[in-house]
Simulated scan of single mutants.
Amino acid sequence: MGYIEALRQIVGHRRLILNGSCAVLVNADGALLMQQRNEPAKRWGLPGGLMELGETTRETVVREVAEETGMRLDASALTLLNVYSGEGMRTAANGDQFDMVTTAYYAEHVTGTPQVADAESLQYRWVPFDQLPTNIPAAHRHAIADYLARAGR
């Protein structure tokens, strides 16, 4: 059982602050790795997930990408992009309430073929930046925009 599941056994559905990490991963063709998740509502987003006890935000994104895609990231290749918060309270499908703090990293010239490796993911695609889906979480949209600004696009 992970940290969040154990914490939820104690606090139930009460509002929590959750910390997570995501990654803007760009391949040599300049396409972005996007993940379509089961929940919520089959939205598209960046690979990543919630922090476990004892992890750094960088370790979180390396672990999550490996768990979700089967791809191994070199932690030293990740560059801090920004930290996002203040999106307001959210409620998960099971009634859990939370506020999210998301730390985003980016890496360029990423290689590998992502595979659906967990029940959270429906599919992965390398998507050109001018063809991004519209149903992307706010923090992920901000991370993509910040990456594009940094890359001069």
Rank of each mutant, 00 (worst) to 15 (best):
D29N: 10
R58K: 13
M51I: 12
T60V: 08
A41H: 10
A93F: 09
A31L: 01
L73D: 05
G30R: 12
M34A: 10
G86P: 09
L80T: 09
M89F: 01
L46I: 00
Q35E: 14
L80D: 12
M89D: 15
A77K: 11
A28F: 01
A77W: 00
A31Q: 14
A41M: 14
V24S: 08
Y84G: 13
L53C: 04
E67N: 01
M51A: 12
G45A: 06
L53T: 06
G45P: 09
W44T: 02
A41L: 15
N38M: 05
V61S: 10
L25S: 11
H13E: 12
T69S: 10
G30W: 01
M34H: 14
E59K: 02
N82S: 14
E55S: 04
L50W: 13
L25Y: 07
Q9C: 09
V11G: 03
R90T: 11
A66F: 12
A93P: 13
M34K: 11
S21L: 04
S21T: 08
K42Q: 14
G88R: 01
G48F: 00
A75P: 06
P40L: 00
N19L: 02
A75D: 07
R43C: 09
D29E: 15
E64N: 03
T69Y: 04
L32Y: 08
Y84S: 12
E68N: 00
G12P: 06
T69H: 07
L50E: 06
G20I: 04
Y84E: 15
K42W: 08
L78M: 14
R90G: 09
R8G: 07
A75G: 15
L53N: 10
M51F: 11
Y84Q: 14
N19S: 11
A23P: 03
E68W: 00
R14N: 01
G86L: 08
E87D: 11
L81M: 04
V24T: 12
G30M: 00
G86T: 03
T79A: 15
V62A: 09
L78S: 07
S21R: 01
C22G: 14
Q36G: 00
I10F: 07
N38R: 15
E39H: 04
N38C: 14
V26G: 00
R37K: 10
E55Y: 04
R58Q: 13
C22L: 06
R14F: 02
A75S: 14
R14Y: 00
S21A: 13
A23Q: 08
L33W: 02
L53P: 04
R8Q: 12
M51S: 03
S85N: 13
A75R: 05
L32R: 11
G70K: 03
P40H: 00
L46T: 10
L25F: 08
R43L: 06
S21C: 13
S76D: 15
G48N: 04
V65L: 00
R72H: 06
E59Y: 09
V83R: 15
S85M: 06
M51C: 10
L50A: 09
R37F: 06
S21K: 04
N27I: 12
C22D: 12
E55D: 05
L25H: 08
L73C: 13
R90E: 10
G45V: 04
G45E: 15
A31W: 11
